[in-house]
Simulated scan of single mutants.
Amino acid sequence: MSEIIKLDNSDSCFITANVTNSHNDAVAFEMKFAKDITISQLKSKLEIITGGSASTMKVELYKGDSYVTSLSNNDAKLGFYINCDGLRIHVVDSFVSFGFDNEKVEKFELSKDQYEQKTNSVRNFLKQNKIGKYNEEEMKQMEEKRREQAEEMQKRADLCILNSRCQVTVPGNPTRRGTIKYNGELEGKNGIFIGVQYDEPLGKNNGSVNGKVYFVCPPNYGGFVSPLSVEVGDFPPEDFDDEL
């Protein structure tokens, strides 16, 4: 799962579990449920979260990616199945497994306006709780941060003049000195990249990426990094022959 949305609903005699949906398992809602509710009542609550139907949904229990059991007894208490936090409740709409030929079955689709009017949709739930893109203040802050990062990126890239000496600092790698040989975009990638010919064979290529040549240098002397990792200045080549 790529994103977990936490909802504060603390109380005693509750268990905490992540809720995922077979139609969109990229988002998991971390929620608290009372242990004494029945599975039938749980399904009704899951309607709001997943957009599924309590009458047709199938509820499965996972520990990480490992299947544990199916919550199949509607009259059983949730605590019968779950006694600890950190498990995952996965909702599968039962009509998915009926074996219909999707090419022959006429599909029912809601218009944008009809979907907006639904009160039990995932979108409405996110709106009501101001989660993700429906949190205007959070989105403004994210947009402002992206704008500032783009401006700083462009400012640093403007300093990276071809054939200038530079020092490259990338987390997890040694600081390397070299000469700027390329400044621009790379095919198939977003953003600006600075191509550097290092003084030592501490690079990853010869100035080429995926078969396209951006500059020419010996093998393992070339590398492409973010402008934010490049410091332009008077960095003469280090004399490695004098080192023991």
Rank of each mutant, 00 (worst) to 15 (best):
26 A>L: 12
154 Q>Y: 13
186 L>D: 05
107 K>M: 12
166 C>F: 03
142 M>F: 01
228 L>A: 12
22 S>K: 11
199 D>L: 01
67 Y>N: 06
56 T>E: 09
163 N>Y: 14
181 K>L: 02
62 Y>S: 07
25 D>N: 13
8 D>N: 12
120 N>C: 03
83 N>I: 03
185 E>K: 14
228 L>E: 14
185 E>H: 13
212 K>C: 02
120 N>H: 12
151 E>C: 04
136 E>C: 00
185 E>I: 08
59 V>A: 09
21 N>G: 05
199 D>V: 00
143 E>M: 06
56 T>I: 02
26 A>E: 15
47 E>M: 07
204 K>D: 12
171 P>W: 04
62 Y>G: 10
120 N>P: 00
76 A>V: 09
71 L>Q: 05
82 I>S: 10
192 I>C: 08
230 V>M: 06
90 H>W: 10
187 E>D: 14
34 A>S: 11
185 E>G: 07
240 F>T: 11
154 Q>F: 09
106 E>P: 00
176 R>A: 01
233 G>K: 10
21 N>W: 15
103 E>R: 12
114 Q>L: 13
37 I>V: 13
240 F>N: 06
194 I>F: 01
172 G>M: 09
118 K>Q: 10
34 A>V: 03
233 G>I: 00
76 A>C: 02
177 R>P: 01
95 F>L: 11
125 F>I: 03
15 I>C: 10
121 S>R: 06
116 E>Q: 14
68 V>T: 14
146 R>V: 06
158 D>I: 02
171 P>G: 05
97 S>A: 08
51 G>D: 09
209 V>N: 07
88 R>A: 10
31 M>T: 13
17 A>C: 11
122 V>K: 09
11 D>I: 00
87 L>D: 01
64 G>D: 11
167 Q>L: 15
80 F>K: 08
33 F>K: 08
123 R>P: 00
193 F>K: 09
23 H>L: 10
28 A>H: 03
144 E>N: 12
85 D>Y: 07
157 A>D: 02
79 G>K: 04
240 F>S: 05
154 Q>C: 03
14 F>E: 10
184 G>I: 06
9 N>R: 15
139 M>P: 03
130 K>L: 13
163 N>K: 13
202 L>Q: 03
79 G>I: 02
92 V>T: 10
231 E>M: 07
186 L>S: 06
230 V>S: 02
161 I>Y: 01
197 Q>E: 15
108 F>T: 14
83 N>L: 07
217 C>S: 08
195 G>Y: 04
77 K>H: 10
1 M>K: 11
10 S>N: 09
17 A>Q: 04
6 K>Y: 05
211 G>V: 07
118 K>Y: 06
49 I>P: 09
11 D>F: 12
217 C>T: 10
193 F>A: 14
49 I>N: 06
151 E>Y: 07
214 Y>I: 04
